[in-house]
């Protein structure tokens, strides 16, 4: 099994392995291209990407969500890196994409977007351009909306589940009828 950092090229076996791991969301050529990319980012060929290496991508570093995205992608081996990205492949379903976005919001990874998660994410997204009162009002309104949505469906969840669960997340975004993020892997002819 050659998916250590030392292997220069992927064997057919490796590629199939990775493909299986990401449910065939990427073609073998895309996986090869991703591997080349991964290796070029992984400066010392450790087999995973560190925070610094990810932040060295200028166009990522300027993203408002850079800290969170880096958190999601750092210290992952190639297989998991591809698995993570596969949610955004052109072949991924809307649900896959939504789940990726949900994961992104779920900062503490407890399966629901709690108030603290939403606060962290919103801070990233709006920066310092919103006053403290407005910020609190926003979060408050968001949870009011959540309550309203639950009341509408008359399935008021128990007190234990306070955050946004995935199906609620999906429902909330069902109104957002538009293209969700898609990542295209550039397949080089010389790859």
């Amino acid at each position: 099994m050659g998916l250590t950092a030392s292997s220069l090229n992927l064997t057919q076996y490796d590629i199939e392995d990775v493909q299986q791991h990401c449910d065939g969301k990427f073609t073998s050529r895309e996986i090869q291209a991703l591997y080349a990319r991964f290796r070029s980012l992984d400066k010392r060929h450790k087999g995973f990407l560190t925070e610094d290496e990810l932040m060295a991508i200028p166009e990522l570093a300027i993203s408002p969500l850079a800290p969170r995205i880096v958190q999601m992608f750092q210290n992952q081996n190639f297989k998991d890196f591809v698995k993570m990205l596969s949610a955004l492949s052109p072949r991924a379903s809307r649900d896959d994409r939504l789940r990726f976005m949900f994961q992104c919001h779920d900062v503490d990874r407890d399966g629901e977007i709690a108030r603290s998660d939403l606060e962290t994410m919103t801070r990233h997204l709006v920066g310092s351009s919103v006053s403290e009162e407005d910020f609190n009002a926003l979060i408050h309104r968001a949870f009011e909306d959540l309550r309203a949505m639950r009341a509408e469906r008359a399935d008021a969840r128990e007190g234990s589940a306070r955050g946004v669960a995935f199906d609620e997340f999906r429902r909330a975004l069902s109104a957002v009828d538009r293209t969700l993020p898609t990542v295209r892997v550039p397949v080089d002819d010389d790859a």
């Binding site: 976005m101 946004v164 975004l173 969700l180």
Partner: peptide, 8 residues
């Protein structure tokens, strides 16, 4: 809520 959650 949808706006906050939508960071696509």
């Amino acid at each position: 809520l949808p706006r906050l959650l939508d960071c696509s």
